[in-house]
């Protein structure tokens, strides 16, 4: 198997070493159980359109496995378990967050549809999320946020800011390093099969000793996206994705 090879293990070892050193320097003992939440809108992509797609569950499983690998403690929700109230009751404490759903700039703001097991789905907005994550004039930052939806990765979207991730990209050399933060999303209309292929590849690279920026670049070029699905990211290219205490975002409000 290829990623047992030399470069890969050296990278993995380096990442682990860096992770341990940073944790030791910044936070003393790492707190047990960095909360992760994973949501997939099964109903919108099956019942509401008369299709028996398994893509929502596949996306959820991929994200749960990746969050677990990265050392978060993920809980996952779909159908009647994925409601706006569930999201909002948990999101204040999420260090890792994943949603596969419809996303857009709705009349209430940027956000996504919550499943709820119905086709008249509630919208969860970035404003609601930001409210839950705002503490004393700053936004509590998350480590890894994935909006597997249309539109929420667009330049105008304030969705990353709701999780304390400024829309800045650090370089592979570390210039503009944003701390242990990474937002992955899509600009414009995204197509589910292409998102599944891209995210399958992204998570596999991320779990093969590459940092999240490299995982993005590799998945981007090794995945055919003929319909124009456009993945995008914000945060720190060199971040491995493992949980770290995060500097709050004072510019995200």
């Amino acid at each position: 198997m290829r990623h047992d090879g030399g470069f890969r293990w050296r990278r993995l070892a380096l990442l682990c070493l860096t992770a341990n050193m940073t944790a030791a320097l910044t936070a003393g003992p790492v707190a047990a159980g960095y909360q992760g939440s994973v949501y997939d809108n099964k109903t919108a992509f099956t019942t509401c359109i008369g299709v028996s797609s398994t893509i929502p569950q596949q996306m959820r499983t991929l994200a749960v496995n990746a969050f677990r690998y990265l050392a978060y403690t993920p809980s996952s929700y779909e159908a009647t378990g994925f409601t706006a109230s569930t999201v909002l009751s948990r999101v204040g404490a999420d260090q890792a967050f994943y949603v596969f759903s419809h996303g857009d700039h709705y009349y209430t703001g940027w956000g996504f549809r919550a499943d709820g097991g119905v086709c008249s789905q509630a919208i969860v907005t970035s404003g609601q999320i930001k409210t839950k994550r705002t503490v004393s004039g700053y936004v509590k930052a998350a480590n890894v946020v994935v909006a597997s939806t249309c539109h929420l990765g667009e330049t105008a979207s304030d969705f990353p800011l709701a999780f304390g991730i400024a829309k800045i990209r650090s370089t592979p050399t570390g210039t503009n390093y944003q701390g242990p933060k990474f937002f992955l999303g899509y600009a414009g209309t995204a197509w589910t099969n292409e998102m599944l292929a891209f995210e399958t590849s992204f998570w596999k690279w991320a779990m093969s000793g590459h940092n999240l920026g490299e995982a993005f670049d590799l998945a981007r070029k090794y995945t055919a996206l003929p319909n124009g699905t456009l993945p995008t990211w914000w945060g720190s290219y060199t971040y491995s994705g493992v949980p770290f205490p995060v500097t709050p975002c004072y510019t995200c409000l």
Binding site: S53, S148, T189, T192
Partner: peptide, 25 residues
């Protein structure tokens, strides 16, 4: 309230069977 959902289906040019497709998120 959502923008239109788009589904693309591929029908085999040989026999008309559905070969697969894609949809927007």
């Amino acid at each position: 309230g959502d923008e239109p959902h788009v589904i693309v289906l591929w029908f085999s040019a040989a026999d008309g069977s559905v070969l697969g497709g894609n949809e927007t998120a």
